[in-house]
Design a protein around this nucleic acid. Structure first.
Lengths: 226, 226, 226, 226
DNA sequence: GATGAATGAGGATTCATTCAT
DNA sequence: TATGAATGAATCCTCATTCAT
């Protein structure tokens, strides 16, 4: 009778309603987190924003942190999709410039559409960098980046590789932050080509423009230039 | 040697203790803000960290926000010094690489020594981006950066100049963030040369390596390379 | 029988408990205000007196002042009823003595049953003489008194009328205060006839004993006696 | 060396300074009590009003209540003077009207000049009706009033006498309150004759107009008139 | 004596969480 | 399930009072 899956679609429908409620609540939480930050976001405010009572919120989340966790996880899943598409495909045939296009554009788009990422994943506001999921994700992202970089700059040793990826990732986030600070949509997007120039100027000396698939066997150590 | 000595120092005598207390409290606040953020920092925690009672804190600051304000202001003053030295001197005879050295090093040093800057001036946690002073400071910094850039890339039009400075500033902050995430001192500082390479790679195509003072009369358009 | 019954009573169901709580809290507040005054009344004490937790109090009142306001308003409403009945009916056929009976008795009764009126509406203790509502009420009361007086002493000019009403009102309050200072119920009520004598002695020379409806057209200016 | 009275006038002068300080502080306290009441008056505010530091205040008063006590006592002394002059002299030769003049005028004057009396001696704000001194004083005043009344209305029995005096005293205070509510000096004083009429109208039926010294031996029963 | 900083208990208020309906 | 009232610990802040200078 409870938690049943015996008969037809009744539990299904319940489940469905629950899912909707959860989505609703997470959306509300995202909004509230965005405007006031995690700590200052009261669960009551989230419930109000979602148009439900506090009690209802606690029907779905055991506590405030769980809301952040769930939101974080949802974002991580979406990010995984976006980054999977952007990073995990085969880039070995692309030129560096094209590679940057393929990777940066979707990431920028996703982040601009989900500003809560910044609210959640930055600053000392939240409890332990929400969910190790996110750290895992960042690690995964960096690993993918490193794999790509390793394919294009085989001569790089581990530590240099790490550092390079790290720099790119934080530069990306820094410029993203710049975008959030612009009110004007046009100005925002005008930063994208600059970001690409920035990373291109940094990476080209390290790994060259050419796709690894097109290169002769001999790797030219352009990294030595730095 | 410093502070009051001319005229009557009677009204100062007592103040001395007070001034020390204020500094003490601001230091404590900086620590607490750093570790848990502004919102989560309880005034009692700050007082405890400073080794005084809550009442004492309120003898000097009317409320919690005022603490953030005062800390912010203190940082702004220190930043003004550092940036004044770093940015306002005559760079016209320096090569771009040298310029970056002269500017980036002190800024990095200052920020690593005052990590509270990041805690205070980022995220939606604090009330109104603490004190418009800071915004003014950022604007001033950017203006100085723009002045330098304009001297080296006279062909740049206003909007491009703005964008270029903006990108540099946020890249700087992004890499700074990366530094904060490293536990290891050596790894931290290993990011500095990368930051310089990054910015050099971005700026060189725009303004060239040469100092403006050393250039032949005709300066032109190396930006075209990008 | 009273309250919601038309239309949807769904939003009312819950409210019922709330309304009861509010009344309960106001009663508690009245008690506490009475015994220690507004300022010294702690919200926790009020909550305790009402048998609820501090949080519950704040579910219904945003702050301490709001409690005073609400209580004030409730009293004003009740006073309006009592005074409406006492003052707004037609007194033109009553002798002065009977008039005083009809007016004074219910007012005294009400005030003895609601001693908080004195606690709230006197002294510099409370924020801005709680709610302009009360001032409006006092003004309304005085206006009604003046109307009655004007009907009985048409020769009185405005300023004298104002003064007469004022004196009566404050005398009433003064004697009320005397009643509050008596422990003994009998002694308390023994003051009522004295109050009436007092006011009769003051008013009779001004407006005579006779009801205006019963007087011949000529009005005798007994006020001149004073 | 301390507290000495050995030598000449040094301790005198000290004493004198102390007295001045105390007066200064009591004046300040009177002001603050008047504007915000006893409870809301912070000792720091009183010290500030007096132009001294909190520490200094506590050099002269062990605690806040002591300030109220001292102020109360000072007022009581002054009141004793005023009332002594007004009430304790021989009134047996005066007519009632003249008696009221002699008594009411100085009392009104004193109270208007010392509004703190109202702040201190009314309402539930202060700790136990400040100092039994004041209660004693009130009792003394009432006793004097009763003595006078007894001389003029020998037929009155004890309880009626008490009540009569009580009524007069509270009526006086009620009208005083009315005076404090007027901004305009002229309006204020216009209430004095009304107060006299009021009391005259009340007392005349009880004790007649004539002074007891002038009456024939058989005095009786004018009270019956009321 | 005077000063102003220091203290800490107490009071107002918030908010995550629970519970009765 | 949904609701909204209930809870109480934690937080910000005040203020009577004390203390070092």
């Amino acid at each position: 009778m409870s938690e049943a899956r015996s008969g037809g679609d009744k539990p299904r429908r319940r489940q469905a309603r629950g899912e909707r409620r959860i989505a609703q609540l997470l959306d509300a939480a995202a909004n509230v987190f965005c405007s006031v930050g995690y700590r200052a976001a009261s669960t009551n405010a989230i419930a109000r924003e979602a148009g439900v009572s506090p009690g209802t919120l606690y029907q779905f989340f055991p506590n405030k942190e769980a809301i952040g966790d769930a939101l974080s996880q949802r974002l991580v899943i979406e990010m995984r999709n976006v980054h999977g598409t952007a990073l995990s495909l085969d880039h070995s045939a692309l030129g560096l410039r094209e590679l940057l296009d393929r990777v940066i554009d979707p990431l920028v788009d996703f982040n601009l559409e989900n500003p809560v990422c910044f609210a959640l994943f930055h600053g000392p506001d939240m409890p332990q960098r929400f969910d190790e999921e996110h750290d895992l994700l960042e690690k995964a992202i960096l690993d993918q980046v490193k794999t790509i970089f390793a394919g294009r700059a085989p001569q790089l040793e581990r530590s240099a590789l790490d550092r390079t990826a790290d720099i790119c990732w934080h530069t990306f986030k820094g410029v993203l932050q710049a975008m959030f600070e612009k009110e004007d949509e046009a100005e925002r997007h005008a930063l994208v080509p600059e970001l690409k120039k920035l990373l291109y100027g940094y990476l080209e000396p390290i790994m060259g423009e050419d796709a690894p698939a097109l290169r002769p066997q001999a790797v030219r150590g352009t990294a030595g230039r730095a």
